[in-house]
Design a protein around this nucleic acid. Structure first.
Length: 736
RNA sequence: GCGCCCGUAGCUCAGCAGGAUAGAGCAGCGGUUUCCUAAACCGCAGGCCGCCCGUUCGAGUCGGGCCGGGCGCACCA
């Protein structure tokens, strides 16, 4: 709401600067004076002009203030401090417009082009833990904010179903537990928890006898080759764990559009194609001597313009130098250091990164380059798709597939073209045919291939990969590969949304049964050791806490209502907890703190909304019509209402709410969703304070006009919070 | 060695496209419930913004250099 006004005022400032000083101002931003008495918006442009013009900033400010005081929407403008121009807005007009726009709930204009956000991407070999939740909460919230700001977003969850982590669990089943596919299928209960324990045992199994690592390699090869019992077991494990992960995330309101499986990337030969293209482009070099002899390497030095890689040292002026990280996967384990790389070994910087090993196999990074190229619509291959699950609201989650019946790109003619793409590769063979006995319907308008009705995936204008910061280096390699093949623009379109890990507080680690040294400030989560807080356990603990709080307050509440509220509070508490920290901050997870429902927490935010709703409920119970009253407020003398002590307080609340869109926009630009969380808290806090004052009672207002005015304020708050809580994925219970 | 992240109140963190007396939450102390009641509100106390130098009219915010902590720099993912 504030954004259009700011744009208008910025234009007025520019034109004033032009006419008064003949100066051209670039981007200018508004600030907020520290106190309401000083003004509603502050302008620091005079300082910039003063430098350029070598004049006194206060004099410049005076000229600008004169111009701006005539701008529409501005009541007055005054010079303050060393040369600020402080603007006082026309409160009545602003309030009217704000309320109208909140009631209309009009979104921002659509921003053309598809955006892909990849998040979660947990190895499908064990239960999700707190670190994975941070990834998912971050990604999911970023998606919500992007959509709010008009982007069309596709959410992808990458499933590494052929990787070493799945192989380890398979080793555990086959060689430790002596269980084959049939036995594993019969395992009941929480399969992800079962594998969690098993995975930890496999670590010990290898440690006891290093030669057992051979089993790992053997298993991995069998999985990649496919068509054997081991591969079928791996597929079963991965598929079952993925279901558990999806269920876990569903508890938190986190959903996806597509599961992108690594096995499909392999079987549909994405890498082979990317390899060809990379060789053609001269991006890869076959090393003939040295330690990388026989490998295809990607040069990290001269690949392309280094600014496109977001090289950290680069001080690019255009975008805020925030995006200095490439991308990777949701790493959950400490890297197995200590084996074969003794400390103190010479560590010279590698300018080259091996993409294809001397034995001809491709590295993870190579596969990732292919996947990233596909996301950007720069690979002339596509997946086949089929429906994976339908969420309760009807939303369909698709999965990639390479199975027959879902013809890949190249087999059928493609109606939708890829930007600049050429289809030189031979069509892949496909058997076409039937699905579940039913003949395949012709492709829908949205899709060319695969199961009918699949939307277009890939072909993104921008890609955000939510991956932990530890993988910044491999992600830079991916970016370099993309740059080498698709140019700097494609690299720039690839964003690594890097976030720091979650570690455990000593108290929490001890509670989990781990010995913690007195000098340790934090304990690292370790999937290999089975050390960590499992996501479902955490949600369960939050639920239990919420239930007991509800019982203490309102023992009469019926069971379903109680459960609904407990769930909302648990989810709200957890999501807010995960979102309130900046993403580059290591979160030291402490169970007691996470279970807190007071202070700067999700429940505090929820409670603000519930209290506002209570006002309306009470009004209705006493025969008032809040909706109607709020609508009538537009006809009030808002100018008078917004004066005086109450007027000031109401005004500051309105002004704060009005900043929401600006905050969301900043969150997108800075790739920092904690801004939205902090803002939602601030708005709730302002409302709590206002609400607390009995003199501002809506129900017991001194006049009908006052009541209408306050009703409008509460109505605006509810509508704004509806937006903000949705952005954060925080549900609001009917009652607290 | 090179690179990245972090270092702000006792604790956990905001603030960082430079701007007006540095803000929250928790913990502590003291208040506020016949009220749209408290998962809340008000007040008190608590800060060489790691250190030094620089740029600037102005630095917690930018640059350089240190110090401390974490992470990365595989033919692992």
């Amino acid at each position: 709401m504030l954004l259009p006004l700011q744009a208008r005022l910025a234009e007025a400032v520019r034109s004033a600067a032009r006419s008064a000083f003949g100066a051209e101002l670039g981007e200018l931003s508004f600030q907020y004076p520290p106190r309401l008495e000083l003004g509603d918006l502050a302008l620091t442009a005079p300082f910039d002009l003063a430098r350029a013009l070598r004049q006194n900033p206060r004099e410049i400010a005076a000229r600008l203030a004169g111009e701006l005081s005539r701008a529409s929407g501005v009541r007055r403008a005054e010079v303050a401090g060393g040369g600020y121009v402080n603007l006082f807005l026309d409160r009545a007009a602003f309030a009217r417009e704000l309320h109208a726009s909140l009631r209309a709930a009009a979104g921002p204009p659509r921003v053309p082009g598809r955006v892909i956000v990849e998040h979660t991407s947990i190895n499908p070999n064990k239960a999700a833990h707190i670190g994975h939740l941070r990834n998912a909460a971050l990604g999911d919230t970023f998606v919500r904010v992007l959509r709010h700001r008009g982007r069309e977003v596709g959410v992808q969850n990458y499933i590494d179903d052929t990787g070493i982590q799945v192989a380890d669990v398979v080793v555990g089943f086959l060689h430790m537990d002596k269980k084959g596919l049939a036995e594993v299928e019969r395992i009941e209960g929480r399969f992800d928890d079962y594998c969690w324990d098993l995975y930890a045992r496999v670590g010990d199994f290898y440690a006891e006898d290093p030669s057992r690592r051979g089993l790992q390699a053997e298993t991995l090869h069998a999985i990649e080759a496919g068509g054997n019992e081991t591969a079928r077991l791996a597929a079963h494990v991965a598929a079952r764990i993925v279901e558990r992960h999806l269920d876990t995330m569903e508890r938190l309101g986190i959903r996806y559009d597509l599961l992108a499986r690594e096995s499909d990337i392999l079987r549909l030969h994405f890498w082979e194609r990317a390899f060809e293209l990379l060789k053609q482009a001269g991006a890869l070099r076959l090393e003939t001597e040295g330690k990388n002899a026989g490998c295809w390497v990607l040069s990290m030095e001269d690949s392309i313009d280094s600014s496109a890689l977001g090289a950290p040292a680069e001080a690019t002026s255009a975008p805020p130098a925030r995006d200095s990280h490439p991308r990777g996967r949701n790493l959950e384990d400490e890297s197995p250091r200590g084996r074969g790389s003794p400390a103190g070994e010479a560590r010279r910087i590698d300018e080259d990164k091996v993409i294809v090993r001397s034995n001809g196999t491709v590295t993870y990074t190579g596969k990732d380059i292919a996947y990233q190229l596909w996301k950007l619509g720069r690979l002339d291959r596509d997946f086949r798709y089929r429906r994976h699950r339908v969420y309760p609201d009807g939303h369909v989650l698709w999965t990639t597939t390479s199975e027959a019946g879902f013809p890949p790109l190249g087999a059928a003619k493609r109606t939708r073209t890829m930007s600049g793409g050429e289809f030189t590769s031979p069509p892949l063979k496909t058997r076409g045919g039937v699905l579940g006995g039913a003949p395949l319907a012709p492709p829908s308008s949205m899709t060319d291939d695969g199961e009918p009705g699949a939307p277009v995936f890939g072909h993104a204008r921008a890609v955000y990969n939510v991956i932990d910061v530890g993988q910044s280096y491999p992600q830079r390699v991916v970016k370099a590969g993309v740059a080498a093949l698709a140019g700097p623009d494609a690299a720039t379109a690839s964003h690594h949304l890097a976030y720091e890990k979650v570690v455990l507080s000593p108290a929490t680690a001890r509670a989990l049964g781990y010995a913690v040294g007195a000098d340790e400030a934090a304990v690292k989560v370790s999937g290999r050791k089975g050390l960590g807080v499992k996501a479902n356990d955490l949600v369960d603990a939050l639920l239990a806490k919420a239930r007991s709080e509800i019982d203490a307050r309102d023992p009469e509440r019926d069971a379903p209502a109680r459960e609904r509220a407990a769930s909302a509070i648990a989810v709200g508490a957890l999501r807010y907890f995960l979102l309130k920290y900046g993403r580059t901050k290591i979160i030291t997870f402490d169970m007691e703190e996470a279970l807190s429902f007071t202070g700067e927490t999700g429940p505090y935010v929820q409670n603000g909304v519930v209290r506002a709703r209570n006002i309306f409920a009470k009004m209705e119970a006493e025969g008032h019509r809040p909706e109607e009253l709020a609508g009538r407020a537009a006809g009030l003398d808002l100018g008078t209402m917004l004066e005086g002590e109450e007027g000031d307080e109401a005004w500051s609340l309105l002004l704060l709410m009005a900043r929401s869109d600006e905050v969301a926009e900043q969150a997108v630009k800075a790739e920092e969703v904690s801004l939205v969380a902090k803002h939602a808290f601030a708005v709730a806090q302002a409302f709590h304070a206002y609400y607390q004052n009995p003199r501002y009672s809506v129900l017991h207002a001194e006049s009908e006009d006052r009541r209408a005015f306050r009703t409008m304020l509460v109505d605006a708050f509810l509508r704004q919070m509806d937006v903000l809580t949705s952005l954060l994925g925080i549900p609001v219970p009917e009652k607290m």
